[in-house]
Design a protein around this nucleic acid. Sequence first.
RNA 1: GUGGCUGUGGUGAAGCGGUUAACACACUGGAUUGUGGCUCCAGCAUUCGUGGGUUCAAUCCCCACCAGUCACCCCA
Length: 421
Amino acid sequence: MLTNAPRGTRDILPDTVGYWLHIEKTVRDICALYGYKEIRTPVFEHTELFLRGIGETTDVVEKEMYTFVDRGERSITLRPENTAAAVRAYLEHKLYADAALNKLFYIGSMFRYDRPQAGRYREFHQFGVEALGGSNPAIDAEIILLAVQFLKQLGLSELELSLNSVGCPNCRPVYRERLQAFFKEKLDGLCPDCRSRYERNPLRILDCKNERCQELSVGAPAITECLCGECQDHFSQLQECLTAADVQFQLDPRLVRGLDYYTKTAFEIKYAPLGAQSAVAGGGRYDGLVEECGGNATPAVGFAVGLERVLLALEKQQLLPVLSDSMDAFVVALGTEAQTPAFKLLCKLREKGLTANMDFAGRSMKAQMKQANKAQARFAVILGEEEVKESCAVLKNMQTGEQEKISLSELVNKLYAEVKD
RNA sequence: GUGGCUGUGGUGAAGCGGUUAACACACUGGAUUGUGGCUCCAGCAUUCGUGGGUUCAAUCCCCACCAGUCACCCCA
């Protein structure tokens, strides 16, 4: 137990952090391109925020939250997603006063108590975007484009974008009733889950993977047939924008998001080869959330990308960048007399901005040369007792094998010139 | 939370109810005393996820737990 990370968590080791940095850099580049500013919120929040924000009857809230009481008797929850927190910060710091439209992005750990499997962890990382304060369908289109461009920039292909509208508080109740009416006499045939969904959230029945439920829901009214005028307009304008931007999408009237705050636009980007956890990105519009959290009615859209899944997809498509961590110099010290002068030299190299390392274990020259080789050092700087006396060192080019003796006073500059040209 | 499969050294793996647990890679050291990448040699699991049980005997059989994996579920 002492030597095992908690279930569903993983260490990101030095040999793979480079992949994460690559993804994170792509995130920052894209967000800069689209004018989204980074926001960092706490890893935990008051439990109440998620109850209100995500919805008390959602699976995430009902059975997946890491909730505990802190020493001040507050109920605290490790964030299972970041939209509610972003909205909280938006209200707390009155960001709405800065601009009519706030475009934010975040990268960070989220926590859900799920059963781990490939692409699903208890601590996982999301990159997400929130545009607060705008109702224009062009903003929905913009963030979808942002998500698509992000994934494309990483090199991913074979992505499927599904799109739907889940309506608003005006038209969804109407649809809900029609759906209940449709399922009323089929209730006995539905799976137990769906029978409880019938009352609580009949839209989710359409989403059920159970074959029998799928069969029974054939011919069910589609939400898109029941949208109010406003939602309908919004949805069709969104589609126009996407088409204008040359984005391929597929309408999926069964697409339902699991978080209660969604209104109008809902979308999902899938990478099918990932198997059961193939949703790489998902999001939509949540026009009611800001008000639900105590602010003025404020329209908003956002999405989140699962970074572990992106990484898995990159692996599958062999798109991971080649990580090289070569360095400028490796200082080889021979004998006890040379240790301190070598260390001094190492410090000087680093002061000059040259990446350098040395062995601290007092190993043989051969072993040190091997290390220099493995560290992909461009130069080895060899310092033995003889050189110390003459106050010089041997500079060896590891690629060509050429080497020359050089006085210590010139060495740093010489090496700098060699490396930086 | 449910079900299936799996669990041998740093990694990939072979193995079998019975003395010393293959092999490869990695790692460490060495091949005339101060030179890497190739080659050669040597070292590297008192132990087979953990804890019980069956047996004269278990890494190989049984149970529990833990972990991984796949599916359900959920979602990013």
